[in-house]
Amino acid sequence: MSRVPMPFYAGDVSALAQALRRGLREAETVPGHVEMLNLLVKSVGYRNFQHFKAEFDARRTMEPPETQTAEVDAKRVKRVVRLFDEQARLTRWPKKYSERLLCLWVLWSRIAPRRDYNEAEIGALLEQHHLFADHALLRRELADHHMVERTSDGSRYRRMETPPPAEAVEVFRHLR
């Protein structure tokens, strides 16, 4: 059975080093393989390695395989585009999950890559791009769908660099 590589991302290498140092100092002996994995993933906000692996497996099953060409549902794209006004601001939060996800991708596209935001900055950015006055909902949804990474205390946010699905790209094209 071949191993599937699990990418590991630490938003702050200094915090990672501090957490590892603290964990090694508290260990009575040199940590074993699994203990070391637990130290690593705990430093970026997971409970343990099993939690990290479960999240990875769940994300992988939700993403279409790279070899498969993704079909675009033109009706869904049209419905989602209608959720935005002339300035491409989201007018309301849709009821359907598939439409919500596409709206989140639009908001994701407006977050600058490789830039850290504090909670107020990400809130202000999201406020500019929607009209229903619930930036906290949007911020939470972006984090829950792993489109942004946030520290465990919620003080820092950073866009996760993941290729958007074909339908989201089609929505971007219509909103330009």
Score class of each variant (00 low, 15 high):
M1A: 13
R3F: 12
R3L: 14
V4S: 02
M6F: 05
M6T: 06
F8A: 01
F8C: 02
F8Y: 09
F8R: 04
Y9E: 06
Y9N: 10
Y9F: 11
G11C: 02
D12T: 06
V13F: 10
S14K: 13
S14T: 13
S14D: 08
S14E: 10
L16C: 05
L16Q: 03
Q18W: 06
A19C: 04
A19K: 09
A19I: 00
L20N: 00
L20R: 08
R21D: 05
L24R: 13
L24A: 07
E26I: 03
E26K: 14
E28M: 10
V30K: 11
P31M: 08
G32C: 03
G32K: 00
H33G: 08
H33F: 08
E35L: 04
M36S: 15
N38Q: 07
L39W: 05
L40K: 05
V41N: 06
V44K: 04
G45H: 10
G45I: 07
R47K: 12
F49L: 06
F49C: 01
Q50P: 00
Q50Y: 08
A54R: 03
D57V: 08
A58S: 13
M62A: 15
P64I: 00
P65E: 11
P65G: 07
E66R: 15
Q68H: 09
Q68G: 03
T69P: 09
A70M: 11
E71F: 12
V72G: 05
V72K: 04
D73W: 09
A74V: 09
A74L: 13
K75G: 15
R76S: 03
R79P: 01
R79N: 06
R79I: 00
R82K: 14
R82N: 11
R82I: 00
D85P: 12
E86Q: 14
R89Q: 11
R89L: 04
T91G: 02
R92Q: 07
W93L: 05
W93G: 02
P94N: 00
K95R: 12
K96F: 07
Y97G: 08
Y97S: 12
S98R: 14
S98D: 12
E99N: 08
E99V: 07
E99Q: 15
R100N: 04
R100M: 04
R100G: 05
R100Q: 14
L101D: 09
L102Q: 07
C103E: 01
L104W: 11
W105I: 01
S109R: 11
S109N: 11
R110W: 13
P113S: 11
P113W: 06
R115N: 11
I122Y: 08
I122V: 15
I122A: 12
G123Q: 10
E127Q: 14
Q128N: 09
F132I: 01
A133D: 13
A133Q: 13
D134S: 10
H135T: 12
A136G: 13
L138M: 14
R139A: 01
E141P: 01
E141D: 09
E141T: 00
L142W: 09
H145A: 12
H146S: 14
M147L: 15
V148T: 09
V148C: 08
R150N: 09
G154H: 04
S155W: 03
R156S: 05
Y157K: 08
Y157T: 02
R158F: 03
R158D: 00
R158S: 06
R158N: 02
E161T: 15
E161V: 14
E161G: 15
E161I: 13
T162F: 08
P165V: 06
A166G: 09
V169L: 15
V171M: 07
R173S: 09
H174V: 00
R176Q: 10
